[in-house]
């Protein structure tokens, strides 16, 4: 590949202070302009990997490059201008409106300015309109439903204007309609110069919406590739220790139906 990948992870290892080895020698790279699913069982190192990318955690060894430049020597403020993050769940907050919350996405660009500029404002307004939350702009953030709040946090990550957006389990407590909703948003957000990496448990949903998927198991990388090719019954058995049917519906979409746990129960 001649082109410099948007994200390149080289031999990433993360060992926590308590000795837990969360990510083992993970290496992969992602091109620009893709919606990428990060799939794997609980505790496989997805969240740790994401936190290493946005510098919430220090790596034990390895390197993370964005556009060919290592993020390790960058300051948190510099990283905030190329990587944004949508948390799995927003902890309680008060006092801010939807508009103010999304506007905080411009914080990494404010530097010493006291007020945001008119350009910041029009960028936020456009984003709110584009993602259908404009009517909520004056509502208090903590008065929204969890689906609405998720959309607002995604909009905030979008106005941060990153190269890479990290989204951690965006649909974990949403119903079917909102799951589709959020995935449609993410799909619509992907543009030529931005890749979105989504950690998610719903494999069928990932297979339907993602251009690529990264599959992990016990801290190790298992596969990277087109979900329609990568997701097979063998892979599910290997990664999840679950017997599953992987089928194709009449529109050619993949679905995964889990049937039986075949690993050893360890309670």
């Amino acid at each position: 590949m001649d082109e410099v990948p948007l994200l390149e992870i080289r031999n990433l290892n993360k060992v926590y202070e308590n000795g837990y080895h969360a990510d083992r020698d993970v290496s992969f790279s992602l091109p620009s302009g893709k919606l990428v699913g990060l799939i794997g069982p609980n505790g496989c190192g997805k969240t740790t990997l994401m936190r290493c990318i946005n510098k919430m955690h220090a790596l034990t060894s390895g390197d993370i490059l964005i556009d060919g430049e290592s993020v390790l020597p960058k300051t948190p403020a510099e990283v905030a201008r190329i990587v944004s993050n949508v948390p799995a769940e927003l902890t309680a907050s008060f006092g801010l409106t939807v508009f103010e919350t999304v506007m905080l996405g411009r914080y990494p660009y404010l530097k010493n300015m006291w007020w945001e500029t008119e350009e910041d404002e029009s960028m936020v307004v456009e984003t709110l309109k584009k993602f259908g939350v404009y009517h909520l702009q004056d509502r208090a953030l903590n008065m929204l439903s969890s689906g609405e709040r998720q959309r607002v946090m995604i909009a905030k990550a979008y106005v941060q204007n990153p190269r890479l957006m990290l989204v951690d389990e965006p649909t974990s407590h949403l119903d079917m309609k909102y799951k589709l909703d959020v995935m449609e948003y993410l799909r619509a957000m992907v543009k030529q110069d931005m890749t979105i990496l989504v950690a998610e448990h719903d494999i069928s949903l990932m297979a339907r919406y993602c251009d690529l998927c990264v599959i992990m198991k016990k801290g190790e990388l298992v596969a990277v590739g087109d979900p329609k090719k990568v997701i097979t019954e063998d892979l599910i058995r290997d990664v999840y220790e679950v017997e599953a049917s992987v089928g194709t519906d009449k529109d050619g979409e993949i679905f995964v139906l889990p049937k039986k746990y075949i690993g050893e129960y360890s309670l």
């Binding site: 990587v83 907050s93 919350t101």
Partner: peptide, 11 residues
């Protein structure tokens, strides 16, 4: 106000 994780991630 957005929480420690978000504030840290924003630099």
């Amino acid at each position: 106000l957005l929480g420690e994780g978000q504030a840290r991630q924003m630099g």
